[in-house]
């Protein structure tokens, strides 16, 4: 294995910071060259230009279907890329799919060369995914807080009550209707926007 040329890996990740983090982790895990593709327009062509041994992409990335075109490239000089899972080392592949990584690997690459790459990628992608979920949740919570504040303001003005009473009224309405406070607040803000 020591004599072999370094593995060429392409990582498709639209977030530049995360892409760099994944690239660094892969480089430190072994002898490989990592190319990162951030802009996914014309994805198949960009990947083909690198002629990589392995392509890694987040399972949830909708642009993944563009990669399927690579498996159809039939010219003698084009490198056949198959999804890793279709190859011999089935167990590894299943782990990758379940962890949310899609790996496309050139046919005939030895499993012992692929394993450290996949292991590293799985760990890194999982971390990225968790951060992304947390970020989305934080953002949503902030947006909901803003809407609830506006709804409270509307109730205070319309009913001549204080902030706490306004919130209690919103909460009671939500409970009576079996809805979330944020949803009731949003309905109120929308309705008042229409009427103003």
């Amino acid at each position: 294995m020591g004599m072999s040329t370094p593995l060429s890996i392409v990582v498709v990740e639209e977030d530049r910071d995360r892409a760099i983090a994944i690239g660094d982790a892969l480089r430190s895990s072994g002898d490989c060259e990592v190319h990162v593709i951030v802009d996914t327009s014309g994805l198949a062509r960009k990947i083909a230009a690198h002629a990589p041994d392995i392509v890694l992409i987040d399972y949830d990335n909708p642009t993944r279907d563009m990669l399927e075109e690579l498996t159809l490239a039939s010219g003698p000089l084009e490198r056949p890329v198959a999804m890793f899972v279709s190859g011999a080392a089935g167990g590894l592949a299943q782990a990758a799919v379940e962890a949310g990584v899609s790996a496309y690997v050139v046919d005939g690459l030895r499993p012992e060369r692929i394993k450290p790459v996949i292991d590293t990628a799985v760990a890194r992608f999982q971390m990225v995914r968790q951060m992304r979920t947390e970020l989305a949740e934080t953002r949503r919570a902030l947006e909901e807080r803003k809407v609830i504040d506006r709804a409270k303001g509307l109730v205070m003005k319309a009913k001549g009550v204080n902030e706490e009473q306004a919130y209690m009224l919103l909460r009671k309405t939500a409970m009576d209707q079996g809805r979330r406070v944020a949803d009731v607040a949003e309905a109120l803000v929308t309705a008042s926007g229409l009427l103003s």
């Binding site: 399972y59 949830d60 990335n61 909708p62 642009t63 993944r64 279907d65 990669l67 399927e68 999804m83 899972v85 592949a93 299943q94 799919v97 379940e98 899609s102």
Partner: peptide, 15 residues
């Protein structure tokens, strides 16, 4: 699913 590839993989690998 986010893509047809992932529909196929989820089915193929038993998810």
């Amino acid at each position: 699913a986010p893509s047809w590839s992932s529909v196929r993989d989820m089915l193929s690998f038993g998810r």
